[in-house]
Write a protein that binds this DNA or RNA. Structure first.
Length: 429
DNA sequence: GGGAAAGGCTTG
DNA sequence: GTACGAGCCTTTCCCA
């Protein structure tokens, strides 16, 4: 029985090994994915420390605020209802109070954050709902949940990293997901601040700066973007100066914000609709910015066109190292499905190459920590960032090592920049 | 009572 | 009908 299974595994391995070679995926497997397995296993086993007391105290504060908000919301609504129910909320907002229903979902009226933000201009209730949702999210998903996930044997939280879920080659993290710990708001950072290094140790965080735009510049060979990065310019200001036809010094904050969104539009697969939604500008203006962007960066246009043509012909697109994403819908007769596949095709080489790069860095970093007999540990990867814990005397060495290894993991035509920082909790770094 | 779908929110 | 890639929470619906 066992021998039979062993023979089956052997035959299967011969089959897939040949397939990996045929598809030029041998190096991706042998030099990236397989060596990454024990690295991820160590990170999972080691876990990360959280301070349950900080989270429990925060949960109590949230509970008080939520009680008060609930009372105010019911008062404004004129009745008690389940605030977390979009269906009941829609009834209150659009039928009872007669506010304008701005957008529909499959089954009713939308009450998402965009809609409520708009409605908040004309009524006090929507803002209270938004605040309630924020606090309920923090309490339910993080403050209440994470303390219960501390393993009593290690005193730490142990996630599972998934190597085979994301279609672009990224990792994912589950049970719990430690890749979506809040950071963008002050309240959210209270959650992040509960993640702490081993007693007496420090966190070291190292993150790639503008990694996807640098990869786009490399893959497309666009001389203007390459030059901007070589000079260390602010890339969004640079884009703004191009699409608004202004000297960089005259770019306003709003123009820079729009240009930043335009850069995201390019990375995510160009759509005037998406850009207009993100920036609250009308679709015509969004289209104009995209046209102006491509006028300034013809090589980016050419790269996208060539990527789509390759994808239509072969049924897949590839990263710099040959990782594939299959997209049969590039040849779909259904324009909705085809457009969706085209956006995925534009984005996958960029997102996937960034993923290849940080995976290489992780394998080398683990090896380097061991070779130098450092006690520091790699704890988490969050797409363009690595988090370590280190004894104080190793902090400088880990910072230098992470910067060096990450910047040189996959050399491009453009210099890569890694920002490193140490701190006493995850909000500090 | 439990699983799936829907809507919503967190992150890079 | 839409921005790319994920995972988790609550409510609602449906079925055994």
């Amino acid at each position: 029985m066992l021998a039979e299974r062993a023979r089956w595994v052997h035959r299967y391995w011969e089959h897939v090994a040949a397939e990996l070679r045929d598809k030029e995926l041998w190096k991706v497997y042998e030099e990236i994915e397989r060596p990454l397995v024990p690295v991820l296993a160590r990170m999972e086993r080691h876990g990360i420390r959280v301070d349950p007391a900080r989270l429990e105290a925060f949960a109590k504060e949230l509970e008080r605020s939520l009680d008060n908000l609930t009372r105010e919301i019911w008062q404004l609504a004129g009745e008690k209802f389940t605030i977390a129910s979009p269906k009941q909320l829609a009834h209150i907002l659009f039928e009872k109070l007669g506010l304008p229903a701005l957008r529909r979902t499959k089954t009713g009226y939308s009450t998402d954050a965009d809609v409520l933000t708009e409605l908040a201009l004309g009524h006090p209730l929507p803002a209270k709902i938004l605040e309630h949702r924020t606090l309920a999210k923090l309490k339910g998903t993080y403050a209440d949940t994470l303390p219960a996930l501390v393993d009593p044997r290690t005193g730490r939280i142990h996630t599972t990293f998934n190597q085979l879920v994301a279609t672009t080659g990224r990792l994912s993290s589950q049970d719990p997901n430690l890749m979506n710990i809040p950071i963008r708001t002050e309240l959210g950072r209270r959650i992040r601040a509960a993640f702490i290094p081993a007693a007496g140790w420090r966190f070291v965080a190292a993150d790639y700066s503008q990694i996807e735009l640098r990869i786009l510049a490399h893959l497309s060979g666009d001389p203007a973007i390459i030059e901007a990065f070589r000079r260390g310019e602010d890339i969004h200001t640079r884009t703004a100066s191009e699409v608004f036809r202004l000297p960089p010094a005259e770019v306003t904050p709003l123009q820079r914000t729009i240009a930043k969104s335009a850069n995201f539009a390019i990375l995510y697969g160009v759509s005037a609709f998406g850009l207009s939604q993100a920036t609250k500008i009308d679709q015509k203006a969004a289209q104009r910015y995209i046209d102006d962007y491509f006028a300034a960066h013809p090589r980016v246009r050419a790269f996208i066109d060539a990527t789509l043509a390759f994808g239509r012909e072969h049924g897949f697109v590839t990263t710099l190292l040959g990782r594939r994403r299959y997209l049969p819908d590039l040849r779909s007769a259904n324009p909705i499905a085809r457009n969706a596949a085209e956006r995925m095709a534009m984005n996958a080489p960029v997102q996937g190459t960034a993923s290849d790069m940080i995976k290489i860095a992780m394998v080398r970093m683990q090896a380097a920590l061991e070779a130098r007999r450092l006690r520091a540990r790699m704890l988490l990867q969050v797409h363009d960032e690595l988090l370590f814990e280190a004894p104080p005397e190793e902090v400088a060495a880990v910072e230098a090592l992470a910067r060096e290894i990450m910047e040189l993991a996959l050399p491009l035509q453009i210099p890569l920049v890694v920002d490193v920082k140490s701190g006493a909790d995850w909000a500090e770094v």
